[in-house]
Design a protein around this nucleic acid. Structure first.
Length: 556
RNA sequence: UGGGGAGUCGCCAAGUGGUAAGGCAUCGGUCUUUGGAGCCGACAUUCGGUGGUUCGAAUCCACCCUCCCCAGCCA
């Protein structure tokens, strides 16, 4: 009997920590959280965090909270929060009843701030923002203490309460932690905990005019929710000492720990909320769900599946080193999924008429065509055929080069699932452009096989002209020309002018009629396409999700 | 020239002192009623560099180099 190797799954460093904590009993259950700020749409980088946080909760039988980090009313909107919930659910995760908001904790957070004041660990500073900045020192020089640093507890309490009461204007005072103005870590130089903002909050309305800073609200919110592993990106590493300081100096009910991992970057695109916002607001793309941007909404509209996004996130890994993932990996993930699950259909993007001269004028017949060769259970459909068909203009060349196996004068090819045809001539217009092909078919090849065993070197997709459905097809290319659009300084200058090409009159086989928005197909030999919500009963609009690899084109 | 991180194949990423996993990309071949998919194969004598410890180092030590982050009353 052979010893079966225990297939020790390769864990990323965070899962290793989680397992260790579970094994040693530091925690008996794992609680994570996904903490978006509702100030923009989620993108593929957030998907990585979602998959990590919810994935860990799932794998270890724990829980993952969806918590909105809504501590800054000037930037946040309910509309964004709704979009975020929709996107998280769509990616495939369920927070159940664990939907929270940092704003739910404002009262508790406030009380703890008073506790800090009473403990002499926080004080009201009345310096201006500029003065605070000046006294903070620099990266190499220590800061200086504020003249207000040693106010009495009573005065601090009084001032802080009056801040809450609305007695002061924005910026008049802030609450600061009393830590160490000489700390080499600037985050520890008496960080601001609360600021005054007379602003209506999308959830608490006008109940508050002081709002906690992220650095204050986050660790305490984690503790309130009994989060065990608080996962964030690398730029917060410097904030961990402050996170820990607060957990230590506030009487919180639990001891969460923060761990940092590298955020996801993708080449040929931009990922920061600020840049995505500019693309949307300045009209460089059609909206937050434009299929060319890496927002979850954009990817969804482009035709990506939640499963593809999840497998992509799995493949990308979790580590601490900066990374730029090749967008080809994202494309691979969607092709892999759609190859198995998308039904095939024939559609011609650039139609070239072909008249099959020996096929009767009035006749038409239909072929039983498999919906998905990768999945026999997908069944078949009827595809009509008649004397005049369209083929892809790229599939014909009057003078074919060496490796071109498709149609050419005198050459025989197979029409997928139909007949073999032989091109007899090309009809040109006055400008010398080919406008139509003449051909003959071999009736004995019905279905696409020849009794004599001859095998054409090419199989073409086609659509019966008489039965074709006119559709709009939107072809997308990368939004930016360079791998790193931000490198040059002005990412907008790097926009690809050809990122969207609209084909207004593509010819599709009639079976796609009535397909609902977001239905995905493979157009044989062309790529994967998804019905866009812009579609109407009169006309379907398709988005190209990804191309199929074309080795002839690639070599050419 | 303060502090915090990181450097393993073109892009990711395992590896935790015993002689460099895997994925994507790429390149061959095979198969094919999608030039798709699939299948088979190739792809780091070497782990930022230099010394050292050791029978043995990507893994330990020392020094050096490079890159990223931090001076919002943003998150």
């Amino acid at each position: 009997m052979s010893t079966t190797e225990a297939p020790t799954r390769q864990l990323d460093f965070i899962r290793e920590i989680v397992e260790e904590d579970l094994r040693t009993g530091r925690h008996s259950t794992v609680i994570t959280r996904f903490p978006p700020e509702p100030n923009g749409y989620l993108h593929i980088g957030h998907a990585k965090s979602i998959c990590l946080n919810f994935g860990i909760a799932q794998e270890y039988g724990g829980q993952c909270n969806l918590r909105f980090d809504d501590t800054n009313p000037t930037k946040e909107e309910a509309e964004y929060a709704e979009a975020i919930k929709r996107d998280v659910a769509w990616v495939g995760f369920d927070w159940g009843k664990n939907l929270y908001h940092a704003s739910d904790y404002f009262e508790q957070l406030y009380r703890w701030a008073e506790d800090l004041i009473r403990a002499g660990k926080a004080y009201v500073d009345s310096l201006s923002a500029e003065e605070i900045r000046e006294l903070r020192g620099t990266l190499t020089e220590p800061g200086k203490e504020s003249p207000y640093r040693y106010r009495s507890v009573e005065e601090n309490l009084d001032l802080f309460r009056r801040m809450r009461g609305g007695e002061f204007g924005d910026g008049a005072h802030v609450l600061r932690a009393k830590i160490d103005m000489a700390s080499p870590n600037v985050n520890m130089r008496d960080p601001v905990l609360y600021r005054i903002r007379h602003e209506t909050h999308h959830r608490t309305g006008d109940a508050w005019c002081i709002y906690p800073m992220y650095d204050y609200a986050h660790p305490l919110s984690d503790a309130i929710e009994r989060v065990t592993h608080s996962l964030c990106t690398l730029e917060f590493e410097d904030h961990r000492p402050l996170y820990d300081w607060l957990i230590e100096h506030v009487p919180v009910p639990a001891r969460p720990h923060q761990y940092e991992f590298a955020r996801l970057n993708l080449n040929y695109t931009v990922m920061s909320k600020r840049k995505l916002l500019r693309l949307v607001e300045e009209g460089h793309v059609r909206g937050w769900d434009d299929p060319r941007i890496p927002t979850i909404a954009g990817l969804r509209r482009r035709g990506y599946t939640p499963a593809a996004i999840r497998s992509f996130c799995d493949r990308v890994g979790v580590a601490k080193r900066e990374n730029v993932i090749d967008v080809a990996l994202l494309e691979f993930s969607i092709r892999e999924d759609l190859n198995l699950h998308a039904n095939r259909v024939m559609g011609v993007l650039r139609p070239l008429r072909v008249v099959i001269e020996n096929y009767p004028e009035e006749k038409s017949e239909s072929f039983d065509v498999p919906n998905n060769p990768e999945d026999p259970d997908a069944g078949t459909r009827q595809v009509p055929f008649s004397r005049v068909i369209y083929i892809e203009s790229d599939d014909f060349m009057e003078e074919p080069p060496k490796k071109f196996f498709r149609l050419a004068p005198g050459r025989e090819v197979r029409l997928r699932s139909a007949y073999f045809i032989t091109c007899t001539s090309a009809v040109k217009n006055d400008a010398g452009e080919i406008v139509e092909l003449r051909a003959t078919y071999d009736p004995s090849t019905r279905g696409g096989d020849a009794a004599d065993g001859r095998k054409p070197k090419a199989t073409l997709h086609w659509v019966s002209a008489r039965h074709a459905l006119d559709c709009e097809v939107r072809l997308y290319d990368r939004l930016f020309r360079s791998e790193n659009p931000e490198e040059s300084g002005d990412f907008l200058a790097d926009l690809n002018p050809d990122s969207l090409e609209v084909v207004p009159q593509a010819k599709l086989e009639p079976s796609v009629r009535g397909a609902a928005p977001f239905t995905r197909f493979q157009f044989e030999r062309l790529g994967y396409f998804c019905v866009d919500p812009d579609s109407s009963a009169a006309r379907i609009v398709f988005n190209r999700t990804a191309t199929l690899k074309d080795t002839f084109t690639r070599r050419a």
